[in-house]
């Protein structure tokens, strides 16, 4: 994380959030090492959107790029949040799953490839429903298999955030990096309001929603590993700093979380602030 004084940081900062997916992938990879696979001119578009009168995008909203990170072979899968809310359809999901499967193949052959996921997604693309869900299950499977061989890094920068089945993908990664503009949750606020009523959650109460699923809260309660400023170089540096032998993935810490849940009274649940004390990070860095 940057140690420069706040005013210097602001002056030299290049927003990562404002970058489209392709430029995000470029920013994460070492200079001049970016090589895109299945780019726009390969025209692997959604076969399902035009059938429903929706304009498809030439890369289906996912950029797969090979290159190097800190000199090591890497692959980045970057989701374009501006296209269909970053939703996962058959093609975009297969691009992410396929890239992870090939990274696994190379790792198994003794040629490690570092996988990095740049997640900006509302989850399954409803127009491709069951094929999006199936692809997400395949992404989960690939992350779990790959994670044993090489750290799998996820970045949720914002502004779309990471929701639905892809929030599980983020949670399965070895290292999860967020910004203050990130949101990470399973169910979108509108869906919770629809399913459980406005007394459960008012989807227009933005302050409440950020307090529940915002990047700062996720980091403070140990549900994310790093909180980084919205700065392309700071995020790239954080990704580079991820090394082998990271701690046991959070999703394996079953007894710890069951114990924590046992202490929660659902009739009187902690407020977000109080949870920061209950689930305090073990490695507070003063932020």
């Amino acid at each position: 994380m940057s140690t420069a004084a706040p005013h210097e940081r602001l002056l030299t900062r290049h927003s990562f959030i404002e970058l489209p997916a392709r430029e995000r992938a470029r920013a994460i990879l070492d200079a001049d090492s970016f090589r895109e696979l299945l780019g726009p001119f390969d025209r692997l578009k959604s076969p399902w959107l035009p059938l429903q009168g929706i304009v498809a995008q030439s890369d289906d909203g996912v950029v797969i790029a090979r290159g190097r990170i800190g000199g090591r072979p890497a692959v980045v899968a970057a989701i374009e949040g501006a296209f269909q809310g970053g939703s996962i359809g058959e093609v975009s999901g297969a691009k992410v799953a396929g890239a992870l499967e090939l990274a696994l193949r190379d790792c198994e052959r003794g040629h490690p490839v570092l996988p990095v996921l740049l997640l900006e997604t509302g989850g399954v693309r409803l127009q491709e429903a069951n094929l999006g869900l199936a692809a997400i299950a395949e992404i989960h499977s690939a992350i779990v298999a790959l994670r044993r061989r090489v750290p799998v890094v996820a970045v949720v920068a914002g502004m779309v955030g990471c929701f639905g089945g892809m929030s599980l993908a983020a949670a399965l990664c070895s290292t999860l990096i967020v910004t203050r503009q990130a949101r990470l949750g399973m169910n979108g606020p509108e869906v919770i309001e629809q399913e459980a009523g406005i007394t459960e959650l008012d989807s227009t109460d933005h302050a409440l929603i950020w307090s529940l699923v915002g990047g700062e809260q996720r980091y403070a309660t140990g549900l994310a590993d790093a909180l980084v400023d919205d700065d392309a170089e700071a995020i790239a540096a954080q990704v580079r700093s991820v090394v082998e032998g990271v701690a046991a993935p959070r999703s394996e810490q079953v007894e710890c979380y069951l114990e924590r849940l046992a202490h929660i009274d659902p009739a009187n649940p902690p407020e977000p602030r109080a949870l920061r004390a209950l689930w305090a990070r073990e490695d507070p860095d003063g932020r």
Binding site: Q57, S58, E80
Partner: peptide, 18 residues
């Protein structure tokens, strides 16, 4: 050569030129 710009996002478009 070929060039790609833009995104199929709200109020936007992508252009593939070759």
């Amino acid at each position: 050569r070929r060039v790609h710009v833009g995104v199929v996002g709200s109020g936007d478009l992508e252009v593939l030129l070759e």
